[in-house]
Amino acid sequence: MKSILVVDDSATMVMSVKGTLEIGGYKVETAADGEMALCKLKAGYKPDLIITDINMPKMDGISLIREARKLLRFTPILALTTESQQPKRDEAKKSGATGWLVKPVGGADLMKIVKQVLPGI
């Protein structure tokens, strides 16, 4: 079973994304901010996919993407955020993000994207 790390400071978002992915057959780990997520990664946790918010306390999503990319070179990282404009997308892409999703993302759409970047359940 493939594992996905979901990072968001909103408990509602975590519940939404985690629930959707678990129904889809994935194992889900969560973190409330970039710092907590990075701690898990540095402790040896190697998820098959990271889905992270951008605006978070302690460490924002762009910084997390940048740091996570140093540890996990080929792991896909998706940004899931309310921010929609191009400059931020470009910044995330430059930091090593695999894709950009604007909230809210429907459950079916989310599963489709996850299967696209993470083929084979």
Binding site: T12, T20, P104, V105, G107, A108, L110
Partner: peptide, 14 residues
Amino acid sequence: AITELLGTIQYQDV
């Protein structure tokens, strides 16, 4: 239906 509902809940964060 549940996943769609979970997706809709995301609006709370928006």
